[in-house]
Structure formats: C-alpha cells, structure tokens
Amino acid sequence: MYHSIVRSIVRTAFQTLSEGDKADLNSILKLFAPDARFSFSGEHALGGARQGHLSIRAWFERFQRIFPEIHFTVQRILVSGWLWNTLVNTFFTVQAQLPDGTLYQNEGLQVLRICWGKIKEDHLFEDISKLQNALRCLETHGVQEAGADPL
C-alpha cells in the first residue's frame, strides 16, 4: 500500500511539472525536506547540485522559464524500502516544442530517497547531448537563461 501511495505522489508531481510555467511549484516543493539535496547531471543551465528549499526553488523557477511548455510521460516507477528510507527510481520521457520548430525529446531517470514522507535526495539524469542541443536552440532564439551557468 505504501509503495502505491509513493508511486501516485511521484506521478502527480510529474503531471504538475507538465503544466510548464503554469505549474504550482509549491505543491512540488512541499515534498522536499528542508535540507534536501537536488542534482541534475551535466554542466549546463539546469545542471549541478543544490541543497535546501531556496536553492531548489530557484532551480524549478529557472526550469519553468527555460521550458515554459514541457510534457513528461512517466514510463515506470520502482519503489523499495520503508517509510524511514525509501528509494524511488522513475523512468520518464520528456518533450517540448523548440522555437525553431523542432521537438526536444529525451529519456530520463530520477533517483529519489524519501525519509518519513519527505524527499531527502533527488537526482535527475537525461541524455546531456540532447538537452544541451535544446538549450543552445533556446538561447539562440532569445531564451538567454538557457545558456547561463548552473545555479
């Protein structure tokens, strides 16, 4: 039962992110522990590691500005462990229309560690070359933050 609840929460979070710049970030950020760690693989505008609510909020706000219309499809969610130490692996696809008319498509993996109902660690992995190509396209078409250094 507990694992089903965790899968539902994760699926809902990805659905919320699929609302793009209209997504309610507070509904996602309340899932994180105050000292949570969040990382996104690679050296690019969305890459790097951060810790704590303010830093994580800044990342999600940047994400919304860079990809105001994005769609996630959860492929599979694997949950193991108990309330005090739960491991979640989420396999997903993502797509967004780019300003040059091409479609950004990628596959990703999210690795979460949840303790007592709060995310303590969230690590995201995508094909970095595909993401970097999309970020370059966005920067070329006026989304300057897409070419910024990591937060």
Rank of each mutant, 00 (worst) to 15 (best):
K22P: 12
K30N: 15
E19R: 15
R37A: 12
E43V: 09
V6S: 00
F40L: 11
F32Q: 11
K22T: 10
V10T: 00
L29T: 00
I5L: 08
H44Q: 06
D35Y: 14
A49C: 07
R7G: 06
F40H: 14
L25T: 07
P34Q: 10
F14P: 04
R7T: 01
I9M: 04
I28A: 00
D24W: 08
A33Y: 10
F38W: 14
A33N: 13
S27L: 15
G52D: 06
H44R: 05
H44I: 02
H53L: 14
G48S: 07
G52I: 07
G52H: 08
T12R: 04
F14K: 10
L17S: 12
Q51E: 10
E19W: 11
S4H: 04
S18H: 09
A49H: 08
F32Y: 15
Q15I: 03
N26T: 10
L31W: 02
K30F: 14
L46Q: 09
I5E: 02
V6G: 00
E19D: 09
R11P: 01
F14W: 08
R11G: 05
S27M: 15
S4A: 13
S27Q: 15
G48A: 10
R50H: 03
F32C: 14
S39R: 14
A23F: 13
G42C: 05
G52F: 06
V6P: 00
V10I: 02
K22V: 03
K22H: 15
F38C: 09
D35A: 14
V10G: 00
E19L: 14
G52W: 05
F38V: 06
D35G: 04
K22L: 13
S18T: 06
H44T: 03
D21I: 12
R7N: 11
Q51F: 02
S8C: 01
A13T: 01
K22W: 11
R50E: 01
R50T: 06
V6C: 00
A33M: 07
A36L: 06
I5T: 06
G47M: 06
E43R: 12
L17D: 03
I5F: 03
L46C: 11
L17E: 14
H44K: 10
L31G: 08
F32N: 08
L17K: 13
R50C: 07
G47T: 01
G20K: 11
A23E: 12
S27H: 14
F40P: 05
F32V: 12
A49L: 10
S4L: 08
L46S: 05
R11K: 14
H53M: 10
T12S: 01
F40I: 13
L17W: 11
S39M: 04
L25H: 11
D21N: 15
L31S: 09
S41D: 09
G48M: 05
V10C: 00
E19I: 01
L17I: 05
H44D: 03
A33H: 14
G20A: 07
G52P: 06
K30E: 15
I28M: 02
I9Y: 00
S8D: 11
S41V: 15
